[in-house]
Every structure is written in C-alpha cells, then in structure tokens.
Write a protein that binds this DNA or RNA. Structure first.
Lengths: 196, 196
DNA sequence: CACATAAGCTAACGTGTGTTAGTTCTTTCA
DNA sequence: TGAAAGAACTAACACACGTTAGCTTATGTG
C-alpha cells in the first residue's frame, strides 16, 4: 500500500496536517512552502498531493476543526443549568484547556484564518462572529441578573478571548507553571480581578 | 522637486508607511505585494524605491516605532512615585490609548514581527522580552506588597498584553462604545474582575 | 533660462512558489 | 503469481514577487 509503514492510529494525511499546523504556527501560512512542509514530513513536495488537495485545504481543515470544537462546547455550556459566572468559568477553562492540548491548531485558526479564500473565509468569519455573540449574550444575562458588573459585554468577551490567545509565550509559561495552575490563574485574574 | 505637491506635514515616505501599515494589518506582511502597496499610494511599484529601501524596511520601521514607544512609557511609569495598582492601571490605559490612536502600527508590530529578518528580529525580540520582564517585575512587587493577589506574574502580564491586542474587533467596538468608556471597561475587568 | 535633482515611468531579471504530468516502485489481495 | 492501486519520485510549467536598470518628466534655485 505504501512505502513506509503507517501507524494504525495515525494516517499520513494526519501527519501532514500536524506538521503543517506546526509550520503555520511557527512561520505563518504564507511563509510556509509546500517544499518545506514536504521535507519535514520526509517526502517530496509533489507527493503531498497524493494525500491532500492543496495548501488551502490544510488551512481550511485546521481552522474549521477548531471552530467546530468551540461551537460544540458553546452548545453544551448554553444548555447547562448553572450560574452565569460558572458558565463563563467553564468557557475560560475550556479555552485554556484547548490551548494547552492543541495549541498549534488553535493558534493557527486564530492568527492565520485571514489567508483562507472564499467561500470558506466568509463561513469561518460567520462562525467566529456567532461564537462571540453567544458569549456576549451569556455575559449580558449575567449583568441583568446582577452576577456580573455593569460593563460592555462585547468588550468583556474580547478581553477574554484574546487574553487566552497568547500562544507564543504559552509553552514558556507552561513549563514553569503547570497547566492546572495556569488555568486557575487565568480564571482568578479574569473573574476576580488582579486586586487583592 | 516632485511631480505632486506634498503636504507640508506629511511626506510621501510617511504616506507609504501609513498605507503599508494598513495593508499589513489587513492582509498580513507576506500577503501584501509591493505592487499592491504602490497602487494604493498611486504610483508604480518601482517608484516606491525612490522613497524606501525595500519591503523589509517598512516592517522594521513600523515594529521599532511601536517598540520604542512602549519602552519609553515603561521608563516613565517605572520612575513614577505611586502605588503598584496605579502603575499597572497607567500601563493598561496607555496600551488602550495607543491601540485606539495607532492601531494599525500596534497591530502590525504585534502580529507580523515574525517576518522580520536578522539582525532586527533578534533585537526586536529582546525589546519585547525586556518589556514583559519589566511589567512582570511591577506585578511581583505588587504581590509582595500585598496590593495584588498571589498569582503567577508572567501569566498576569501575558493576559494583560493580549487582552488589549484584539484589534480586528477593535474598530467595531470603538464605534459602539466611546474610547474613554472602552479604557474604563478594560481597567475594570482586568483590575477589579468580572464578578460584581 | 538652464541646470541639478527628486520622483515618476517601463521593462526586465532572477527567484521561489503551488501545482500538474508522467513515471516508477511497493504492497495488497484475488 | 499477477493485476490493481496507493504512494513515492523527477521534471517542469506558469505565475507572482521583490528589486534593479535605465530613461523621462517636472520643479525649484542660481
């Protein structure tokens, strides 16, 4: 079937996506060449096309995988029966968790999605927009119930989402602070504030 | 002297930098071509080289302008005589202010600096690293004085810096919320927390 | 008016890119 | 064992890019 034995659990296609995510994160989508990707995978550039349709497919795949993950989590949290603060906390913890476990993908989907082409670009933008909107609705409900300070909900959501997206410094911090502690720090600062 | 009268206050070189920052922000450094930049400026690509040395110079110029601005502000804040919380608040407000007034430049320096080449890349990285370190030192002093909760200072700085860097949604929010209110929301959420 | 110069233009070069065509090798399965 | 097919290879194409060379035009100063 193939020259090189493939692990039962991971196909070559998956390997290509994984390496691509790493390169896109490190150097950016545009700055990563198919030849470079191929070299890291251990084959020639042309051989990549036995497994994928093209460079854009790689970016699309990564971005929508992440977008779908977060959208599904939002479905789950919305339908849960708990306080608003708890919902916000669950979302923050999920973001941190995803960042720690799949940070290459999350980073790429966050920073490189601009390089997608239509019609995927519009679809992705819409998913992003909806996610933020749903997050803001939760915050607004929290404000109206008196659980949350009277602030602009969109600003709050913007702060949250971006606070967590700092992936370049991420690994450095992860190795100093363990990831549970990181999650807790994040929740504390964002929900309780800096001041003691 | 030139075919087109230049405004006394703005040289053509400045105009090129300004348009470049807009394009780099919108499409990314790599995805912006000199031909496209030239078209937006209203000249041919080759004519750009009468004003600048090359594409890399544009990125270098933008990044170091921003880095110098923040480094100078850090000098100022460090030497001020006030509480730690006030220092942190001053820095946050300055970040928001710079973002509102020069968001193209700030955004580009934050997201596109990877595309710089040596030796500028190393120098820029070092400036960034120093800035974060000095910021973290302030937070740590706040912790030891009991003004700030016992959290990981690096994580806190990471949260702050990234919370403010969400420029893509920035203009949208600015037009709904005025920029003073934005600054206040930011300070409230980050210093006092979300919970009421 | 004439000269120097700034700033524009056209044309082109060299390079790197994504991708395709065509071929060869290896493995699986009937 | 032999056919089918998956997956690798080499070679090349077409294109877009940053940049340079060389020329032309316009303008301010003597």
């Amino acid at each position: 079937m193939s020259k090189i034995k493939i692990t039962d659990t991971t196909s070559k296609k998956d390997l290509i996506y994984e390496v691509a995510a790493g390169l896109f994160r490190e150097k950016g989508f545009r700055a990563t060449s198919m030849r470079e990707l191929a070299a890291k995978v251990g084959i020639e550039a042309a051989s990549l096309y036995n497994h994928i349709h093209g460079k854009n497919d790689l970016l699309n795949g990564i971005c929508f995988k992440v977008a779908n993950t977060f959208t599904r989590k939002m479905d789950e949290v919305e339908s849960e029966d708990c306080t608003i603060i708890e919902k916000v906390e669950k979302l923050i913890r999920f973001h941190v968790h995803e960042m720690v476990t799949h940070y290459q993908d999350v980073y790429v989907s966050d920073r490189e999605w601009r390089n997608m082409e239509e019609p995927e670009l519009t679809k992705y933008r819409e998913m992003r927009r909806m996610y933020r909107k749903r997050f803001a609705s939760i915050v607004e409900k929290g404000i109206s119930r008196g659980e949350i300070k009277k602030i602009d909900a969109n600003t709050a959501v913007m702060i949250f989402l971006n606070a967590i997206a700092a992936v370049d410094q991420w690994h450095r911090i992860i190795h100093k602070v363990d990831s549970d502690q990181l999650e807790n720090n994040m929740v504390i600062v964002l929900i309780e504030g800096l001041k003691s």
